[in-house]
């Protein structure tokens, strides 16, 4: 029973209720920072870490916080973790920290994190909250990295450029130049490219869901089509 519960949490976080594609939360860093794959990886790890730590902490204190003041308490917890992560990144990944700039402290205001604290961690035990935070974070990071890779490949013709920011000198080999002498498709790097790219990714997810649903409907009895695509909730 518990096992299938974790499977469902994983499926929710990675696909069915993906933070970026379905909940459409945390758009600000998602759109602003995904100009390169490495940026996406860096912000993805920082966000996932915050999500996991804040989910665990909120779940631990869920019985001792009065509901009237729960939101300020959650924000304080998230802010403390983000500050710690920010200082750590400044110390160990200083160049990447400089590129990501304001978007690291802004993780505090990422609705996805507060959303998970409020909607899941404050109502569930520690282990499910940990799994939920991890899977939501990984799902979000996957989209960050995918969008970063698409925009970098279209915009600059490379993949994993500036990998040394993340992995040091040892990571230099990761940089792939897809096309030599690439002119650069500036739109992909500029903000409109982020919006168009995210829109196409959401469309792609919906198409895949529809295909899967159709197949499931063909295999199973015709009444089993209730599991419709959840409508994306609009938030900042």
């Amino acid at each position: 029973m518990a096992n299938s519960n974790y499977n469902e949490l994983t499926h929710n976080g990675l696909w069915k209720n993906n933070v970026a594609l379905v909940q459409v939360l945390g758009l600000c860093p998602l759109l602003a920072i995904t100009t390169t794959t490495i940026n996406g990886i860096g912000l993805g790890i920082a966000t996932t870490l915050t999500l996991v730590l804040s989910n665990i902490t909120v779940s631990l204190i869920r019985h001792s916080v009065r509901p009237e003041i729960r939101i300020p308490v959650f924000v304080l917890i998230i802010a403390s973790f983000v500050t710690a992560i920010e200082l750590a990144m400044n110390a160990y990944f200083h160049d990447l920290y400089k590129i990501l700039g304001i978007f690291i402290p802004l993780i505090v205001t990422n609705c996805a994190i507060l959303g998970r604290a409020e909607a899941f961690a404050s109502k569930n035990a520690v282990v499910p909250s940990f799994i939920d935070g991890l899977m939501m974070g990984v799902g979000f990071s996957a989209i960050l990295i995918l969008l970063g890779a698409i925009r970098e490949a279209l915009g600059m013709g490379t993949l994993f450029a500036q990998a040394h920011l993340m992995f040091g000198e040892a990571g230099e080999w990761m940089t792939v130049t897809l096309i030599d002498d690439y002119n650069g498709f500036l739109l992909a790097i500029l903000p409109p490219g982020a919006f168009i790219g995210l829109g196409l990714l959401i469309a792609l997810k919906n198409v895949i869901d529809q295909r899967v649903q159709k197949k499931a409907a063909q295999v199973a009895s015709p009444t089993a089509t209730e599991d419709a695509i959840p409508a994306p909730s609009m938030a900042k």
Binding site: N183, L186, L187, L190, P192
Partner: peptide
Amino acid sequence: MLLISFPRE
């Protein structure tokens, strides 16, 4: 889109 993406051309 072209003007923004390919200013030189």
